[in-house]
Design a protein around this nucleic acid. Structure first.
Lengths: 223, 223, 223, 223
DNA sequence: GATGAATGAGGATTCATTCAT
DNA sequence: TATGAATGAATCCTCATTCAT
């Protein structure tokens, strides 16, 4: 059967990588753990390797440097987010009530972050706070793009400049709310989630144009 | 002559304190500069000493460690803020329109941060993001108390728990807006300031109880 | 059929050797390239393997260590030199005019080095400069032997000790001139070649005994 | 007495440096030793610190990196050379017989190198052999300038380009001879020194124009 | 007080080499 | 054979902190 041969031929190059892939997963897991406990800046590659149970050299066989680990981790998290939560932060039917759209997005986003606390650690990134380095921060860029996509479906009449600004603002609010949420547990955590929703809904409400069944949003905003 | 002795005894420490105060101011200024450029974690005490034009040993004669520098810097900034802006974040006459109260607080807060960019660097602090270490972060605690004071004057009917939560949320929103504001310049910066005000006003509006000339805030909030 | 068995037995190793030879050539070529760019000490076996397009493990299947690569490379270069330039540094008819002998040897030697820049890199070798490790440096030893051979044909009356010394000296002068030559281009390079010839001829001239048809040092040279 | 006060005032800043100066000397000595045994490239800063009996951090308090150590060492050696041997490689009275000028320069140069074997190690420098990096190699540059100065006094009629080329060539020959000399001892070493002189004298002899009281190349030399 | 030398563990990263597949 | 993963000591260099002067 040619199947066998082909499979072997196909799997051969991957079998080698199988160990490698496992190691990469291991290393990323370890990195996630270390980033969470010490933060990105203070995390050391040696600590990550130790946590993964491998030698420092092994780490560098798969990642050229610390930043690359963070980037790869961010990438995987974005993909996992898409895989697991599908439409979180995805554009929605413009007719969706704002509360619903925001509530759903926040819930999914929060849920994901609770499962993957690194996400939050990574969002603060390797950069000097205050000098926002969006260019180098793929995670931030991707998130921002998603938020823009979502908002552009909700606020179709907004100018690109305003949309960009509003998106950044929403992402910032998201992060702020997330930080508070992660800092609490149980009922209090739930309460913060609700507050975050309130913040976003109330912020965006006046921006959604006149839509059928809507008569708020009467205040003309001049930024 | 007891006078001489007393005077010496009194003046010596004063002179020393005077010199010491100058040194401390020098060091804190240098620290502010270094924190701004490299961030707290990456800032090195040696760099601070160098920037201050003194030896590392001298630095440690006034501060027991790096964290103490940040703490003292934060303290002084809080005092400067009070001195310079007086009522920023101070309680207001409950009759003040919300837009005015928020607008004024935000403007002052932003202005202060633009003049003292360290403030922002310190707010991110030495701590692991995500694990909010409020106890160790005097700056955060103080700010929070101020915000609570301000909000309690605006929302007199709110329960302490809700007040605390809302305050934290507002402070978080503040920080998020500040980060965006500092990240832009000119007209765009102004636009972000306005957005931040919008966010806060719209968030708080429904929370201010029925006040003369106000009939929003009818939605009963149950967090 | 014994034929088959024998053929297999014979051909297998041949095929393997053939493949092996190709690999070795590949690796040596890569090593030459890396040695030239980074020097021997700084060259890494991993870099050589990468340059050769093979894995590090493969490299170590053919060479026990880094030094062995350099040695083999040196050997091959010596053979190539012999193959390509035949009589460069080979003994000559004692009646050959000194200028001719030296000029020819230098020209060939320089030409070879320009075509094979590794040669020069290898001549500096893995050893600490100043502590000449002739034993370990096959290249040096071989070159020296050749030079001695050439000189012994030119200076037949010289004692072995003097011959050895003069040979080493000539080889040293060769290397020094080569370094300068390789460090320049075009007309300047040519000028250095001429200078090197001058140096050697003038150095050796008084050593060649009175020979028929020679009335030495009469030719005025203008470098 | 103001003397005392002044002296104190003057010595105070130096007293601090006294330890430092001692350390620097210690470190340079250690570096010299390590460079000699392992060569510049293979020498490690940790090894130098260990040899000096201090911690790696101490080394970096005085030198920013390995290259700086080599540079400072080279500088000091040049100065020591000038101090100790005064006119070695210094311009001479044009009437000086060539043999004398060259002989003296070589003798002093060799003597200095025997006392300071690092000198030789440094002359090979941090660079890839074959790509002569004269710019970064202060030692080489300085030496070259000296040789040019000496030669310009001996060959006053030579064009600058020729002078530069001849100087480089002489320096190269020097180095080559030095390597051989250092590689031998006793009588053999002396023999190499003589050979080096022969090389240089014979190379330069035809270049010195007709000078009063000279009927060149008539002296039979026996190496 | 002030200085600057001293520390030494720890940072990221590399590399010759070995080993399992 | 060939691969690429694995190693771990070694590389240069930094830093918070202490100590002798």
């Amino acid at each position: 059967m040619p199947d066998t041969a082909e499979n072997q031929a196909k799997e051969q190059p991957r079998r080698r990588q199988a160990r490698g892939e496992r190691r990469i997963a291991q290393l990323l897991e370890a990195a996630a753990s270390v980033f969470c406990t010490t933060g990105y800046t203070a995390a050391s590659t040696n600590a990550i390797a130790r946590e993964a149970g491998v030698s420092p050299g092994t780490l560098y066989q798969f990642f050229p440097n610390k930043e690359a680990i963070a980037i790869e981790l961010g990438d995987r998290l974005m993909h996992q987010m898409r895989d697991a939560y599908g439409e979180a932060l995805a554009p929605v039917d413009p007719a969706t009530p704002l509360e619903e759209a925001v509530g759903s997005a926040v819930d999914r986003f929060i849920a994901f972050n609770c499962e993957h606390p690194v996400f939050f650690a990574l969002m603060h990134g390797p950069d000097v706070p205050g000098r926002i380095a969006e260019e180098h921060d793929a995670l931030h860029t991707t998130l921002l793009a998603r938020v823009e996509g979502l908002l552009s479906s909700l606020l179709p009449d907004t100018s690109p400049a305003d949309l960009a600004r509003t998106s950044r603002m929403c992402l910032g609010l998201y992060k702020a709310g997330l930080e508070l949420t992660l800092g609490h547990e149980g009922a209090e955590r739930e309460a913060y989630v609700q507050e975050l929703k309130n913040v976003l809904v109330r912020y965006l409400e006046p921006l959604v144009g006149e839509r059928p069944g809507r008569e708020e949003a009467s205040s003309p905003r001049t930024p």
